[in-house]
């Protein structure tokens, strides 16, 4: 397994796209953190200082650029391999496909977490330098696990969609399309089918974050993630490379 992980690390770091995408996740998070220092006002529309953890959390969770770029990082694991045919080199060197899947999964998780942590750290640095650190809001621990879970959700959805479809661009935009589709469905049908938000993955994630029926929300989110990843795994095992 160490050979596979080493190989995956070399594969990921040897293309510029990985570094460029990671840089732009961090840059966009810093930009959104800066915007966060300007955006909060009180009821009288007077600017107020928002809590640091809220700004940092929003710099990832409320940042559509980061969503697409994190999805892009997730889609790269298999997307580039299928797009350029190198999957055949990989599967010749490592004929056990389950190992290849788990190595790519692990590397995607690690990269998404490192990039997210770096983004939050960079955002914190900006707030520190500009004198905008403000106590209050959610705890640091809550902010950390929520941004991490959010980043992993989009990176792994993209990872799963790419294995399923072997389509790199679809892997990148798939999670964003899913979030738009969910909003549209809830907007159109939510009043008629009140249970709808309860069974959709990103709504469930949102409910989980705000502490609404945590066990059910976690279960729904987890089940969707499992279905996407398990389907991808099965297809990788069964299909021609």
């Amino acid at each position: 397994m160490m050979d596979l992980l080493t190989f995956e690390w070399r594969r990921a770091r040897s293309i510029r796209t990985t570094w460029i995408t990671s840089f732009f996740v961090i840059a966009s998070a810093v930009g959104f953190a800066y915007l966060g220092t300007l955006a909060f006002t009180d009821v009288a529309d007077v600017p107020v200082a928002a809590p640091t953890t809220t700004i940092l959390s929003d710099s990832i969770i409320g940042n559509p650029i980061a969503i697409v770029l994190l999805a892009s990082l997730g889609a790269m694991a298999f997307g580039h391999e299928y797009r350029y045919g190198t999957i055949r080199l990989t599967l010749t060197a490592f004929p056990r496909r389950a190992g290849v899947f788990f190595a790519k999964f692990t590397m995607t998780v690690v990269i998404a977490l490192v990039v997210t942590a770096s983004s939050v750290a960079a955002g914190y640095g900006l707030l520190l330098l500009t004198g905008n650190l403000t106590p209050g809001g959610q705890s640091w621990m809550t902010m950390a696990w929520q941004t991490a879970t959010f980043a992993l959700t989009f990176a792994l959805l993209a990872f799963g969609i790419t294995v399923l479809t072997r389509n790199h661009p679809l892997g990148i935009v798939g999670p964003l399309l899913l979030s738009i589709l969910e909003s549209a469905l809830i907007g159109l049908l939510g009043s008629r089918f009140e249970w709808l938000p309860d069974v959709l993955p990103l709504s469930a994630l949102q409910s989980w974050f705000i502490g609404e029926d945590v066990a059910r929300s976690m279960g729904v989110w987890g089940a969707w993630m499992l279905v996407v990843l398990a389907s991808g795994f099965v297809l990788l095992k069964r299909r021609d490379a």
Partner: peptide
Amino acid sequence: AHLDAKFFHPSRT
């Protein structure tokens, strides 16, 4: 194995 002359990432040296 060498199965195709184009099995490489175009931006990886």
